[in-house]
Amino acid sequence: MKTFGGENTDFDEVISRIGTHSEKWDSMETVFGVSPHAGIAMWVADMDFRPPKCVSDAVKNMQEHGIFGYFGDDSDYKAAIKWWMKEVHGWDIEPNWVFTTHGLVNGTSICVDTFTEVGDAVVLFTPVYHAFARVIEAADRSVTECPLVIENGRYVFDFEAYEKLLTGKETMLILCSPHNPGGTVWMRQELEALAEFAKKHDLIIVSDEIHHDLIMPGQMHIPMGNIKKDITDRLVMMTAPTKTFNIAGCHTGNVIIEDPKLRSKFGKRMKALGISGNAFGMMMTEAAYSPEGAYWVTSLMKYIDENARVFDEAIMDIDGAVSMGLQSTYLAWVDFSGTGLAPEDVIERVQEGAEIAASHGATFGTGGETYLRFNIGMPRVQLVDAITRLKKAFA
């Protein structure tokens, strides 16, 4: 990422979200049995930080104007997306490639609806973000799980093994890049191999890159759109400002399609479903995709990187627990298989002993059964409280 200037942000500020209709905090007791008043929310993937001032100012300006009508003339909005992809990711796009969806789960569902048929199968590299399987199965398609392999502390693909897992019904694969929940940043040769796999089996590639800005210092994300392996005619890119700037509630995602035929088909389905953008989300996106927003992201990732170091050191103190080294995201992926405890016993210690709500690994598919995912996107004083609880619960 290039270097930009901006205002400093106090990521150490503790902001109570209880009673604000926060799914992460106000639903944790219903889902996990952990009181938000006594416990710590580390499950839903949004952070406990305010967004950059440029985003808050955009919302403030809308409020001060006082009229909240339909959003029109999206030229500046799309220009901001084009600027961000070029300046931050070195990826050249055109404004007319961009569709605005109601977030990327919605974007995924429209892709499944548009480019596959009932009875088709979709390849997922598991463990992976649980909403993918939920959307696929709800649309009367099936999931073909292709388990990832751990090598040198990170996930890798095993395409030779995947050849034997395909059923012949597959028409699409969904890539999570960077990977959620493992935090792996895929290398160029891995993405090129994936492209060849998709071409060989005639699969549409849907590349969900919602975490593409949340890259640890020293790592580099490569957009699938920059992999030149003759895959333009089968590639759908998905990005969003929501994870990056902690504005998930605005439900605004970018589906970016270079190929005219794919773009026409997707656009027609968008019209049929009557989907249009959220004015607040589009104004927030335009403000975020700016030099000020880029500066904020750089500061954020320095803070998250230190959070990851502190968290991983603490996990090492729990006999048999292993945290996968984060290359991206703010989601720590911890394997408890070495503790000798059954997954349900681990969950009991975390939820009842430590009073922490963390995402259950089994929900991410094959390979996640012995894991828990912890959201470390929080002020460090809260993180230290959480790891103190964890070490006590496993003592």
Rank of each mutant, 00 (worst) to 15 (best):
P127Q: 12
Y129A: 12
P178D: 01
R389V: 12
R188N: 03
D335C: 06
V381W: 02
T184R: 13
G5I: 04
D385L: 08
A272F: 06
E258H: 11
S35M: 03
P343Q: 03
D213T: 15
I93Y: 01
V322Y: 10
S299Q: 13
M220G: 01
D92N: 14
A294G: 09
H221L: 01
E355A: 04
D213A: 13
E94D: 15
T100C: 06
H65G: 12
D140K: 15
T329Q: 04
C250V: 14
I205L: 07
G338Q: 05
M283E: 11
L166R: 10
E306H: 13
V55D: 01
I256D: 05
K86Q: 14
D233N: 13
P147H: 10
E192T: 13
A161Y: 06
G368Q: 05
M224T: 04
G103K: 12
D208L: 10
I93E: 08
R50C: 00
E355G: 00
F364W: 13
S323L: 09
N8W: 04
H360A: 15
K2T: 11
T370A: 05
R17C: 00
W43R: 03
G340E: 04
K78Y: 06
F280E: 14
D120K: 14
C250Y: 08
V346R: 02
T144F: 13
D305W: 15
A240L: 15
I205W: 15
G103L: 06
T252F: 01
N226M: 08
Y330E: 01
T370C: 05
T9N: 06
G253H: 02
R380D: 03
D57F: 00
F11R: 05
F157T: 02
